[in-house]
Design a protein around this nucleic acid. Structure first.
Lengths: 120, 120
DNA sequence: TCATTTCGATTACAGACGTAATCTTAAATA
DNA sequence: TATTTAAGATTACGTCTGTAATCGAAATGA
């Protein structure tokens, strides 16, 4: 039921899913590609803490942040929301749109077929 | 490039994709399940016109609205955005999440397999 | 013709979000 | 110890969204 994560926040979270705990500095540094100022990144860290998505441990005056939720959990939630919002829960329509639109590579096709076979 | 459509606006649009042109009254009536006031629905119609997603034809003082964009176009755009935003464009990850998480019915599985076969 | 109804247009307003700048205070340094 | 720095906290502010209420004009009814 937790409050959800915005797009920008998710980009920050992504960093911490890759590696944590990290100081805000670390996160800022790993996000240097996005041209956000340090202030902006810190705002997102702060909001994620408020939303109870990140935990932190103090060390001196620095905070070291770690995710409190699994990446897969967020992805599932988002996927579910997307399916409902955009496709009214019509899974076949969603899959068709992705498959038809995205020109899957043959590798992706094979991967997906295997996945489906496993699903029995 | 067109300006994007919010979730609520999409619900309204959905009605007009099913049938158009429709007067605002018609739309309101078809949305009676959502407990929006007439005012709210009209706000969405108005915003959709401003965003150049809906066209209208005047008849007396009534407007009759029609979509200016195809449903499939919006769905593709949204799907594409979702893939990029949430899965960083990783199609395999996206499909895996949907397939693993959503417990596809055997019908859906078959549908998807056929779809994949067509993709050659 | 004058009042009332009923359109669409305009305005409202709070919360989320993107994007920071400023404030406070504790730590580091001179 | 006094000063400077730097971390997080707080505040800012415009846009978008959800959710309407009000306004102005045109149509309709009395």
């Amino acid at each position: 039921m937790t409050n959800r994560v915005s797009d920008s926040e998710k980009i920050v979270l992504e960093i911490l899913w890759q590696e944590s705990p990290l100081s805000s500095q670390d996160v800022v540094q790993r996000l240097s590609a996005h041209d956000w100022t340090e202030k902006t990144v810190k705002t997102f860290l702060n909001r994620l803490v408020k939303k109870d998505i990140l935990a932190f441990r103090k060390e001196g005056r620095r905070y070291f942040y770690s995710p409190k939720v699994e990446r897969s959990e967020i992805l599932s939630e988002e996927s579910d929301g997307f399916l409902k919002r955009v496709f009214q829960g019509d899974m076949k329509a969603l899959l068709a749109t992705f498959v038809e639109n995205k020109q899957l590579s043959s590798e992706e096709l094979k991967y997906l077929k295997d996945l489906l076979d496993e699903e029995q």
